[in-house]
Design a protein around this nucleic acid. Structure first.
Lengths: 225, 225
DNA sequence: CCGCCGCAAGAGCAGTGCTCTCTTTTGTGG
DNA sequence: CCACAAAAGAGAGCACTGCTCTTGCGGCGG
């Protein structure tokens, strides 16, 4: 039993080592990760890497999951303060700070998906951590009476939102969940815009502008149209 | 003279043909465009393509410029209606519709930039057409007294915004320009989120949700925090 | 009419993902 | 403790990529 786990542990360590080197390559070279280059850095034949990852896509998927988890963990740990706007703004800055520190990993998870873009089901768990944090903050603010529900939403969208609300933030009004998702999308858009160069030669006071935007997003939640 | 222009015209036609085939490849295979495959489709040697584009990056740059121009032209042509929110919402839907029809080209211009790729200055002109349209709409609404200016913004961000405002939308209050840019970023974020699969298994009533979001963005402009 | 220059073609280099076969290592069950 | 099978690594090889270089062809300008 313990004997069998020796093999497994060595294998896990090797897998981690590969991912570490791959992450380093990702940080320098960008998304076009070369399996052979990683193997060279590890001093092993490229074919040996295939014992651990069936394909380059599988390695990338592992990197994506790790990136989601790193971001999710950072954001979850950053939740603090009291009162709705501050808690939300804290999350926004945590997301932005992580993205600025790990731009290529951000691009990996929130940029354009690579060719086939088949997201395995393993990724959805880590992927939703950030929006779940936002949902929790908004839900708590709603329960505390800090934010109004706003006008109900009907139709198919209403159904979708009810479904999402009861699964992700039970007790939170669906229309509020909609505004939370919109704020999250605005957050991701703002970070991507800054990171992908959409603001180049336009706005240099990035942090201030980001803060302004996210205050607007918070206001959009606190004060529905 | 006419002779010289014959050469030039043939060359331009060949260039267009390459770009057309490249665009087709882009639409099917995604962003990892193969110059050799394009050459094969054209029945020519891969080395011949280099007579027209010095590198794969240069071809991609041309595609990017074309995509920006196609989107910009579509959006400019779609501006209609009267009154601020409707005009803005029309632009939003024009952007989304174009993106849904040309997902890979959207990914090319608003997705993660390809590694090591530096946007040449030729791209900035076409790139800013959409935000200029939004700026014009907001500026006109401001001139017509349809939207308030909101509280002034100081500091470095205020300087940036004043600079942008006087160059892109003279006479429009800088703080309003900030909200216009924020709305544009939210727009891009919403389209990317939908296109890149961030809404998968969550919200199926995409158009309705998009409309809701953009109504929120419009309200953010009409009614500053 | 000739020469020249733009154009195309092909070979070639270095790199890639991935597969196959072969060898070595190594944990493990008896 | 030891033989063995399973796991791991190595290396060659295939098809592909971007890009360069050299060579030949042909239409255009003088």
């Amino acid at each position: 039993m313990t004997a069998a786990s020796i093999r497994a542990r060595v294998r896990a360590e090797m897998t981690d080592e590969i991912k570490t080197v791959a992450r380093r390559h990702l940080a320098t070279d960008g998304a076009n990760l070369s399996l052979r280059a990683v193997a060279r850095d590890l001093g092993m034949a490229s074919s040996a890497v295939y014992r651990y990852f069936a394909s380059r896509d599988e390695l990338l998927t592992a990197m994506i999951i790790d990136a989601y988890d790193a971001l999710g963990g950072t954001v979850e740990a950053a939740v603090s303060g009291t009162g709705f706007p501050d808690r939300f703004l804290g999350v926004c800055h945590a997301v932005r700070d992580w993205a600025l520190a790990n731009p290529h990993e951000w691009a990996l998870i929130y940029g354009s998906p690579v060719p086939g873009y088949q997201a395995p089901t393993d990724t959805v768990g880590p992927a939703i951590r950030v929006i779940l944090v936002i949902g929790r903050i908004v839900g708590e603010a709603s329960a505390a009476g800090e934010v109004p529900a706003g006008e109900p939403i009907g139709g198919r969208l209403g159904d979708d939102l009810r479904y999402v609300a009861e699964r992700a933030a039970p007790g939170t009004p669906p229309q509020l969940v909609a505004r939370a998702i919109a704020a999250w999308i605005h957050l991701c858009g703002a970070v991507s815009a800054e990171l992908f160069g959409q603001l180049n030669n336009t706005i240099e006071a990035r942090r201030e502008f980001f803060e302004l935007q996210m205050r607007g997003a918070a206001a959009m939640i606190s004060r529905p149209a």
